[in-house]
Simulated assay, not measured.
Amino acid sequence: MEQVKFGAELISRLMDHLSSQLKGCVGVGLSVWPDGKLLRAAGRAGELDQAQLDGGEGPLVEASRYERQVSGQVAGVDVVAVPGSWGDGGPVVLTVYLDHSPRVSDLQAIEEIEPLVATAAAVIEFCAGEVLRADQMVRMVQHRRYIEQAKGLVMGARQCAPGDAFELLVRTSQNANVKLRHLAAALVLIVGGTLEDGAEEVGVVEPPEAAFDTAHKLWTAIKM
């Protein structure tokens, strides 16, 4: 089977395609919150995404925090923000800026392209530009399941919203200098005792000791 290398060019092509499908599109962006990083941008998306990242508010931030599609305005420009996959820094959010209020046809076009953009971004983040293999893709999906499980554990213990739980996991991993996927897997092991069946077969190994230490401290703190 021919190997495929994913990169920034793929995301750019997908974003350019989306822009061409939307009349009145003034920009398309791809950013990460709460990490506060602008990944890719075309048109006015660069300045408008960055303003929300710097200010910590706006449709982009709300879409990440509440894990749902959000429409609104930024500097008088209409925007649709859609959260997708996530990396160690937070959910990847696709933003589409329009010179008019979003129409049904606009939302349909966004819904068709967003999963492809999110998947491409996740692959790039996980594989760090390497040639993608099937086992890497399976391992990436497995790690993200543990992040979802860890987020659910935090939500249950703190009775908080999904975005708040995710922000806590991200902040904890960054402060302790451990990867989010390692922290998540360690937390699942501490609370549940085991990883999912078949995890070792796809290369998901037990997290490092630092991740366990961090997960223990986190779980103790939120259970108090």
Rank of each mutant, 00 (worst) to 15 (best):
V28N: 14
D99M: 02
A150K: 00
M137R: 13
T220L: 13
Y97W: 11
I11N: 09
G192C: 06
G84A: 01
K23L: 13
L107C: 08
V32T: 11
S64Q: 10
S31Q: 09
I190H: 14
D106E: 11
V26P: 01
E209P: 05
V26I: 08
P208M: 00
R103K: 03
P59C: 12
H100R: 10
G193C: 05
H143W: 12
G55H: 09
W86T: 08
G90Y: 10
L98V: 01
V202R: 00
H216E: 07
Y146F: 11
E125P: 05
Q136A: 09
Q136W: 05
R13V: 12
D78Q: 07
L168F: 04
A75E: 10
Q21K: 13
T172D: 09
I11C: 10
W33D: 06
L107K: 02
S12L: 14
V204Y: 08
M1Y: 13
A128K: 15
L183W: 01
K37M: 10
H182A: 09
A75G: 07
A63N: 04
T220K: 15
V131T: 09
L30M: 08
T220G: 09
V104H: 04
Q108V: 15
A120G: 05
E130I: 02
H17M: 12
W33I: 05
Q149G: 05
D35T: 12
E206P: 11
D135Y: 02
S20A: 12
L168S: 04
I222R: 15
L60F: 00
E67G: 01
G203P: 11
Q21H: 10
I113W: 04
V93W: 00
V74K: 01
G203R: 02
A176I: 13
S64V: 03
P83C: 00
V70M: 02
L168P: 02
E167Q: 15
R65L: 12
I222N: 14
D135K: 09
F126L: 04
L189F: 06
I11K: 13
S12E: 15
S12T: 15
A45T: 01
P208W: 00
Q108N: 12
K151D: 04
A165N: 06
A199V: 12
M140I: 08
V80P: 14
R13D: 14
V32R: 04
V4S: 09
F6H: 12
A157I: 01
G27W: 00
G193Y: 08
Q52A: 01
Y97V: 02
L153Q: 11
T220R: 15
F166D: 01
G152R: 10
G87M: 02
R158G: 03
A109W: 00
G129H: 10
G163C: 01
K5R: 15
A128I: 03
A199Q: 09
Q52E: 10
K179I: 07
P83T: 04
L107F: 00
G129V: 04
A109R: 01
D54R: 11
G163K: 04
D99E: 12
Y97E: 00
M224K: 13
L107H: 00
E111H: 06
P34N: 07
V28T: 12
V178R: 11
E125W: 14
E130R: 10
I190A: 10
R145D: 12
R65W: 08
E111P: 05
G203W: 13
A184Y: 05
V202L: 05
A211N: 03
V170T: 14
